[in-house]
Amino acid sequence: MAYMKKRWVSHDKSIFIEDKYHSLRAMPKNPLVRERRRPRAGGSTTETQEKINLRHRTEKLTRLIMDNFKPGDWWASFTLSEKVPVERFKAEYAKMIRNLRTFYKKHGQDLKYIAVHENITGKGRLHGHIILPFLPGVPFPQMKAEMEKAWGLGDCHFKPYEARAMDAARLAAYMTKEDVLTTKLNAKAQAVKAGLDVKKLDAEIKEIKSKRSRICPSKNLIRTRAVTQQITRHDTYSDKIKAPKGYHVVKELSYNGYTIDGYPYQHAVYERDG
């Protein structure tokens, strides 16, 4: 056995992601390569597993954004002019989606979206965000006016979505609160290792979790699946990440590391040039 390769390609072929890794099922025969395995440090902690789950959730959302949205689409925020009960917020959100669906259909396009509700538990300022497709022939002032009419509880703010790999990754991390929560979980792990009191960090982690976003994707989104295969013609893979012709490596998102079981692992993100 050699190694496993999992490849995901976005719907428009502009981005693809490759994971290469060894496992108990796919280990190299060469004993020198086998030594690359890092000893497992006494099992998985709750925080370690939570970081892994959070990373997987964020990467899944990143791929969903990459699959469905393109340059020129809209990232919109909808806020409240005054405080309202959560149930009222949810009801007005559902009404907004119905109104937007009708508006998009009127212009010959189905509405697809990924929305996120912030502070839905009641802690912090209740608001939301949504990524929407660009409508050809609909100027920005009309789009903004239609969104505000559809929402009805406050202001709407728009930003263009650039659709690069890093844009999708940042958007997904923001929606899942990955960066903020991972920073606190890392700080707690270091404090535990140093024998320090972690009560304050536990309280901060609990507060972040209480404000975590509720992600609401439409049902008509494209969901491209990754293809996994076992590579047997080579004993292992190269640590060097090299992009194929016509693509470049997204360095900020690509890395070599280890699985939770200590096996070598490589995550590479490639983006089309231009």
Rank of each mutant, 00 (worst) to 15 (best):
A243C: 02
D155A: 01
G152M: 13
S254A: 01
V138T: 02
K83D: 10
F16Q: 13
K90D: 12
H129A: 00
K240F: 04
L181Q: 13
Y270M: 12
E35W: 06
K6G: 00
A172E: 07
A203N: 15
K200D: 14
H56A: 14
R55N: 12
R225W: 06
L201Y: 08
W8M: 02
I114V: 08
W151K: 05
M96H: 03
Y104N: 05
P39A: 01
M4C: 02
A2P: 10
K60H: 11
K193V: 03
V84N: 03
F103W: 10
D167G: 00
G274N: 09
P264Q: 09
K90Y: 02
K106D: 11
E92T: 01
Y174W: 11
V269S: 04
H22I: 07
N256E: 09
I52R: 10
E162P: 02
I17C: 04
D179K: 12
K90G: 00
Q230V: 10
I231T: 03
M27K: 08
N53I: 03
K251F: 01
K51S: 08
L80E: 08
K240H: 11
N99I: 05
P28K: 04
T58M: 14
Y265C: 06
E18T: 01
H11L: 13
K184N: 09
Y263P: 09
R225P: 03
I15V: 11
